[in-house]
Amino acid sequence: MQRVNMIMAESPGLITICLLGYLLSAECTVFLDHENANKILNRPKRYNSGKLEEFVQGNLERECMEEKCSFEEAREVFENTERTTEFWKQYVDGDQCESNPCLNGGSCKDDINSYECWCPFGFEGKNCELDVTCNIKNGRCEQFCKNSADNKVVCSCTEGYRLAENQKSCEPAVPFPCGRVSVSQTSKLTRAETVFPDVDYVNSTEAETILDNITQSTQSFNDFTRVVGGEDAKPGQFPWQVVLNGKVDAFCGGSIVNEKWIVTAAHCVETGVKITVVAGEHNIEETEHTEQKRNVIRIIPHHNYNAAINKYNHDIALLELDEPLVLNSYVTPICIADKEYTNIFLKFGSGYVSGWGRVFHKGRSALVLQYLRVPLVDRATCLRSTKFTIYNNMFCAGFHEGGRDSCQGDSGGPHVTEVEGTSFLTGIISWGEECAMKGKYGIYTKVSRYVNWIKEKTKLT
């Protein structure tokens, strides 16, 4: 034993070699072989497995989906700052455009905790909710729209109204504003409101030439003092309507412009014939205590009207009353817009006519005020429907199939267009061939041609 100890002390290297040989010859039971080890760690190889990531292109799944990435790591994937920024906006807080917040056709661009709407022409605001041009839906104005110097929408209202708090709607500024039905039992019968379409306001006024200088022999019209197929109006439903009495009662109609003036057809009036105007009328054979009678003290036909040349060209006249009318729910003026808007309103496509005229061709006159909704007829169809001249200051309205029309005794009465609950004068009943005849239409004086003249002559002093 002493000898062994001496050998170990003198030859430590020998001992180490012996131990190493023993270990190498022993069977290893701690580690699995290569094949079995792979069965336990069965993990798919990654895209760049075996390579240094710093030297390969980034992978979106590896960089940002398996674990949260930084902007720089995302930049490695896209290799483009702009594309990385677009991805980053949604990656950080989701897609803010998912709810489609942009209105009126706006395009949404996502941002971090926010979004941006790219608005089409005519709109602005956070969600493109603000109209900035009158060309689109009248700028959301209830009545009139004008573009300011910086191309912003400025709404306005006709006389007797003021802008509401929203700067879009119009509200009454006087007790009985024009064009409004205020009798409670008839307010439910107000005709369907007309909503502004998209309009090209630059070209809204037709490029028409008034044929002022045409000389033409007097034409022989049949029954051209021209509501057939209409309905009984309720008291106060058309408070701007008046009836004219002269040699015979209810020979023509008219509309209240203001307390002192009536507008009617020029062919209705004769110099030297006494005319009485009755406002607030409903049943011409009954006294309903809503009527107001006034005498006409002055007749002003349009300066281009000449019955000797043509009885229905420039067929418009103004009547001055001896005493002002007292405005109330049964006696209310009709609204008159400017030339541009009167023309736009007419193009809405349908209007209402009213009167006490004959209820059928050569038949009896109506006792109760009649009204009828009539569609506008395109000019080409209008011209083809008659052998008589249709001037540019006239328009056609009615039904091709016949059966409904204005008729004798309705002449001078109103053709009105309702705009968001307020009625505007767009025409004056003038003439036609018979009444409600198939293929024939009622012919009306186009008020847009005469609004400046009306307003100039009827100013209240």
Rank of each mutant, 00 (worst) to 15 (best):
Q2T: 07
V4N: 13
M6E: 07
P12C: 15
L14A: 12
L14K: 05
I17T: 06
L24W: 13
S25W: 12
E27Q: 14
N36A: 12
N36T: 11
N42P: 05
P44C: 05
K45C: 00
Y47V: 05
K51H: 14
Q57F: 01
L60H: 03
E67Q: 04
C69T: 00
C69L: 00
S70I: 05
F71E: 04
E76Y: 00
F78Q: 04
E79F: 04
F87L: 02
Y91R: 05
G94E: 14
E98S: 13
S99Y: 08
P101H: 06
G105C: 03
G106F: 03
C108R: 03
C108H: 02
D111A: 12
Y115C: 03
K126Y: 14
C128A: 03
C134P: 03
E142R: 05
F144K: 02
K146P: 02
N147V: 11
N151C: 05
V153Q: 07
V154R: 10
T158Y: 05
E159Q: 08
G160F: 02
A164S: 07
A164D: 07
C170G: 01
E171F: 09
E171M: 10
A173S: 14
G179D: 01
S182C: 04
K188E: 10
T190K: 12
E193F: 08
F196A: 14
F196T: 10
D198N: 15
N203I: 08
N203D: 07
I210E: 15
I210M: 09
L211P: 09
I214G: 07
T215P: 09
T215I: 07
S217K: 07
T225S: 08
V227T: 13
V228L: 08
V228Q: 15
G229A: 13
G236N: 05
P239H: 00
W240K: 01
W240R: 00
V242L: 02
V243D: 02
L244G: 01
G246S: 11
E259G: 04
T264E: 01
A266K: 03
A266I: 01
H267N: 05
V269I: 12
V273Q: 06
V277I: 12
V278K: 06
G280S: 02
E285P: 10
T290F: 08
I297K: 11
I297S: 08
I300M: 08
N304I: 04
Y305L: 02
A307C: 05
I309G: 08
K311N: 05
N313H: 13
D315T: 02
L318E: 00
L319W: 02
E320S: 02
D322G: 06
D322R: 04
L325N: 00
V326A: 09
L327H: 04
V331L: 02
I336E: 00
D338M: 04
E340D: 15
T342L: 04
K347S: 13
G349P: 04
S350G: 08
G351H: 05
V353P: 02
V359D: 12
K362G: 15
R364D: 12
R364S: 15
Q370T: 07
Y371K: 12
L376A: 04
V377E: 02
V377C: 03
D378H: 07
D378A: 09
T381I: 12
T381H: 14
C382E: 02
T386C: 07
K387S: 08
T389A: 15
I390E: 05
Y391G: 12
F395K: 01
D405T: 15
S406Y: 12
C407S: 04
Q408H: 15
Q408T: 15
G409C: 11
G409Q: 11
S411Y: 15
G412I: 15
H415V: 03
E418L: 10
E420W: 10
S423R: 09
S423D: 03
T426G: 00
T426H: 01
G432V: 08
A436W: 07
K438D: 15
K440E: 12
K440Q: 15
G442I: 10
K446E: 06
K446W: 00
K455I: 06
L460N: 09
